[in-house]
């Protein structure tokens, strides 16, 4: 799978508005490409690194949410984190804030949305995980309305365009500076979830059992949710909201390596990165202009999810 990802990265470097040969890409990596090629490939390379980080990050966040809530439908989008984060980003954009404030606002609103989703779920007293999904839909609805209001008052010349760009997801505007400021946050989130991935298995059990196993259920759960939210919010900062990846990639990975998060989480990272590299390559090369990424991930994600459901995989509802 990892080798497949490397091949995909290589292919993705070749494909674009200016298609390049394998030799030219190889020369770039060896450091002796001519300056024009180097310029194109440098941009492409930065973009692909961002795509890999976001793909891996969103998928691991999805896998984490699914484990912690023991619900196969839990994903950054369904829990409202993504919409919440884009509300944060939109408000910051409205105030012409610099990138790090946009990042912070996205994170804070992402966390606020998850917390409110959990509070509503708590009030519903639902024994099944459907309560959580409902709460997520409720919070997403609220965040959509807030986002709508922000868009309504935004300057249509400049701000509105930026906000809409956030909503549909695209790596078009990702440059070195954006990658350097947000990339490390995603790397930290990925590393944290990777080293704590066995604990996620424990958190799939009911709270009383987790407690008697000797693990503080709430503390562990909240730490995991915080890092998954951090990853989601950071991804939203970099490229806006990208649908489906966080939901379907964990399922694909679990089909391949089983449900043990010690294997499923690294696999989610690789599959997520690979799938998003494919989606982004399509998004930037299929037409003259970049098409929003959520359109592509939607067309890829829907049939895959239907296939997973038909195959009878238990998604925990």
């Amino acid at each position: 799978m990892f080798i497949l990802l490397i091949i995909l990265i290589f292919c993705s470097m070749m494909i674009g508005r200016y298609n390049l040969s394998m030799t030219e890409v190889s020369k770039f990596f060896l450091g002796n490409a001519d300056s024009a090629t180097r310029l194109i490939l440098n941009l492409r390379f930065i973009r692909i690194v961002a795509v890999i980080l976001v793909g891996a990050g969103l998928s691991m966040a999805g896998a984490t949410f699914q484990s912690v809530f023991n619900n196969g439908l839990a994903s950054p989008n369904i829990l409202g984190v993504s919409t919440g984060a884009s509300v944060g980003a939109a408000i910051a954009i409205l105030n012409n804030a610099p990138i790090y404030i946009i990042e912070l606002a996205a994170f804070v609103m992402g966390v606020v949305t998850v917390v409110l989703t959990l509070v509503i779920d708590n009030f519903l007293h639902s024994k099944s995980s459907i309560g959580l999904i409902l709460s997520g839909i409720i919070m997403s609805g609220l965040m959509q309305s807030i986002l709508g209001s922000v868009k309504y008052v935004a300057d249509p010349e400049d701000q509105l365009q930026s906000i809409v760009y956030w909503e549909m997801g695209s790596f078009m505007k990702v440059d070195k500076q954006a990658l350097y400021s947000v990339g490390p946050v995603i790397v930290v989130g990925i590393i944290f979830l990777l080293v704590t991935r066995w604990r996620l298995n424990t958190l799939t059990l009911d709270l009383a059992t987790v407690k008697t196993i000797g693990i503080n259920p709430k503390l562990n759960r909240n730490v995991m949710i915080a890092f998954a939210t951090l990853l989601t919010a950071a991804a939203v900062c970099l490229c806006g909201v990208i649908g489906w990846i966080g939901l379907i990639v964990p399922h694909i990975s679990r089909q391949i390596v089983g449900d043990d998060n010690r294997y499923a989480l690294p696999m989610s990272a690789v599959v997520g990165a690979a799938l998003l590299v494919i989606a982004d390559t399509i998004a930037r090369s299929i037409s003259v202009n970049d098409i929003p990424l959520s359109i592509v991930t939607g067309f890829i994600g829907v049939p895959i999810f239907i296939f997973i459901l038909i195959k009878g995989r238990n998604v925990g509802v």
Partner: peptide, 13 residues
């Protein structure tokens, strides 16, 4: 503790 629940909702082996 061995709890009363036998409907453990996990796909783990």
């Amino acid at each position: 503790l061995v709890s009363q629940r036998v409907n453990i909702n996990t796909n783990l082996s």
